[in-house]
């Protein structure tokens, strides 16, 4: 029996908690991608770099607050600096919309043009971020590191295996729940949110109903900027902030949005967790679990690992391809908010 519980603890510690954390980060990122797709009808490749930009501003805010001696320990100071980062990302998004996207919108450019334009902006923002903060690693996490550590857990339960919960993991999961709840409340209960869904559903009919398209577009960018910053900051707190990592994050984020059904917010969230759980579960070494669950004195020689962690990114690629072949509309048939 203790063996079984030990195995469970290992799985929780190395798969469940990390996947929930990573999944929450992906879900928030995918939610931003899906909003742009639903309302503005293009795949926004610049989203990953927008996450980096918002996070960078948040880091500056964090440093400023730290210099002033402000702290909300045990929580990381970055949470306090989030509004600044959000403001930065929103302003940059709105500037890009006015100077770049608006022109193509007025010419009713095809989604492919928008996609290519967004790739251009992706490189631009990426360059801007590396120019300002540098390509190196930035660790901006402060506050308490663990809510409970593996050692505490072992001592209080008497088990052989430890279960740790990092502050960043708890903060990520709780923030994600709050943000997603607020997002759904906004989309489903407020007049403005409903008008966004209406616009996403049937643009012509929305215009006939007197819904102002410029306003819908503006609100979309505000939401997307906020979501990008929150997702990026949570990711940066949990891992570390490295500008290049956000470009790599783009693939699992798009995979999440497409797997869930692009344009569907619920799908984006489900997709985020599907991708995160698969990536972690497929690359986890199950040796310990097998040892606990197998017959006595049975010990596998290998690590019992399906794929090396180097292939993590490949997992989202494979899921993406499978979904596109088997069910191209995603788990929740997407298209509209």
């Amino acid at each position: 029996m203790t063996d079984f519980i030990n195995a469970l603890v290992v799985l929780t510690n190395f798969i469940l908690v990390p996947a929930l954390t990573y999944g929450s980060q992906l879900a928030l990122g995918a939610l931003g991608v899906t909003l742009v797709y639903g309302v503005l009808r293009f795949s926004n490749f610049a989203h990953g770099e927008m996450m980096a930009f918002g996070t960078m501003i948040t880091i500056f805010g964090t440093w400023g607050l730290q210099a002033l001696g402000v702290s909300i320990a045990p929580l990381p100071t970055a949470l306090l600096a989030l509004p600044l980062g959000i403001a930065g990302a929103v302003i940059l998004s709105l500037i890009f919309d006015k100077t770049v996207y608006k022109y193509h919108r007025q010419r009713k450019a095809s989604p492919v043009i928008f996609l290519i334009v967004s790739i251009g902006l992706m490189f631009f923002i990426g360059g801007l971020v590396r120019f300002i903060i540098g390509p190196g690693d930035q660790i901006f996490f402060d506050g308490t590191r663990f809510i409970f550590s593996a050692r505490d857990f072992k001592r209080s339960t008497g088990l052989d295996e430890g279960l740790a919960l990092k502050m960043t993991q708890a903060v990520t999961i709780i923030t994600a729940i709050l943000v997603v709840a607020a997002m759904f409340w906004f989309l489903n209960k407020t007049r403005t949110g409903k008008s966004m869904r209406a616009f996403s559903d049937n643009e012509n009919l929305a215009l006939l109903s007197g819904i102002n398209p410029d306003r819908v577009v503006m609100i979309t960018w505000i939401l997307v900027g906020a979501l990008a910053t929150i997702a990026g900051t949570l990711y940066g707190l949990d891992k570390s902030f490295k500008p290049f990592s956000f470009m790599q994050l783009l693939l699992p984020i798009f995979a999440a949005a497409i797997v869930g059904g692009v344009g569907n917010p619920l799908g984006a969230i489900a997709g985020g967790y599907v991708i995160a759980f698969s990536e972690i579960a497929v690359t986890f070494a199950y040796k310990k679990v097998v040892t606990y669950l197998g017959p006595d004195s049975f010990q596998p020689d290998s690590l019992v690992q399906l794929l090396g962690t180097d292939y993590k990114i490949a997992v989202s690629f494979i899921i993406l391809v499978i979904v596109l072949i088997v069910r191209p509309t995603g788990i929740f048939s997407g298209k509209t908010l």
Binding site: K194, S195, R197, D201, N202, L205, A206, T336, L337
Partner: peptide, 12 residues
């Protein structure tokens, strides 16, 4: 608006 409820259609 196919994805919205009847009442939401009327609201819009």
């Amino acid at each position: 608006f196919t994805s919205m409820t009847v009442e939401e259609n009327l609201e819009m």
